[in-house]
Simulated scan of single mutants.
Amino acid sequence: MINDSNFIHFMKHADHQFSGWDFSFLSETGRMSSSLLSWSYGSMAISLIHRAHSMLDMGTGGGEFLSLLGPFTGSVIATEAYKPNVPVC
């Protein structure tokens, strides 16, 4: 449960820099938790990717996950809006 003192603590760390899809600084503070899903995006996408002539990955983060889905047979374009991730991706 988040109370006022937790909220103030979290706000002090709101500008914490991160790279790619490493959100450990959130999970370590208890602000985020995750569990396995009953489905896999990668498994669903990979057969489509291997047949595609081109693809667009929006919000690629650092590109770590996208790189796991190759090899690519066509053109691949990736976008990323979070400035610190741009050099990484």
Rank of each mutant, 00 (worst) to 15 (best):
N3S: 11
N3V: 10
D4S: 12
D4L: 13
D4W: 11
S5G: 05
S5L: 08
F7I: 10
F7T: 09
F7M: 10
I8N: 03
I8Q: 03
I8R: 05
H9C: 07
H9W: 13
H9I: 10
F10N: 02
M11H: 11
M11L: 15
K12W: 07
K12A: 12
H13N: 10
A14Y: 08
D15C: 06
H16Y: 09
Q17P: 13
Q17H: 13
F18V: 05
S19W: 08
S19T: 14
G20A: 04
G20Q: 03
W21H: 14
W21E: 14
W21K: 09
W21F: 14
D22F: 04
D22P: 02
F23Y: 11
F23H: 04
F23T: 04
S24G: 07
S24V: 03
F25D: 07
F25E: 07
F25N: 08
L26W: 01
L26A: 02
S27G: 11
S27W: 10
S27N: 09
S27Y: 06
E28L: 09
E28T: 15
E28D: 15
E28S: 15
T29K: 09
T29D: 11
G30D: 01
G30N: 01
G30R: 00
R31P: 02
R31M: 08
R31F: 05
R31G: 05
R31A: 05
R31C: 04
R31K: 05
M32V: 12
M32A: 10
M32T: 10
M32P: 06
S33P: 05
S33D: 07
S34F: 13
S35G: 10
S35C: 12
S35F: 08
S35E: 12
S35W: 08
S35R: 12
L36G: 08
L36M: 10
L37P: 03
L37A: 12
S38E: 10
S38I: 07
S38K: 11
W39V: 12
W39P: 05
S40Y: 06
S40R: 06
Y41K: 09
G42Q: 07
G42L: 04
S43P: 06
S43R: 13
M44W: 12
M44V: 11
A45E: 04
A45Y: 07
A45F: 10
S47R: 05
S47Y: 05
S47K: 09
S47A: 05
S47V: 05
I49F: 02
I49N: 00
I49S: 00
H50W: 14
H50N: 15
H50V: 08
H50S: 15
R51D: 13
A52H: 00
A52G: 01
H53E: 15
H53D: 14
S54G: 11
S54N: 11
S54W: 10
S54T: 08
S54I: 06
M55G: 08
L56R: 07
L56V: 09
D57R: 01
D57N: 03
D57G: 02
D57L: 01
D57M: 01
G59V: 03
G59R: 00
T60A: 04
G61A: 04
G61V: 01
G62I: 02
G63R: 00
G63L: 00
E64K: 08
F65M: 13
L66G: 04
L66M: 12
S67L: 15
S67Y: 09
L69A: 03
G70I: 02
P71R: 00
P71T: 01
P71V: 00
P71F: 00
P71D: 01
P71A: 00
P71Q: 00
F72V: 02
F72I: 03
T73D: 06
S75W: 05
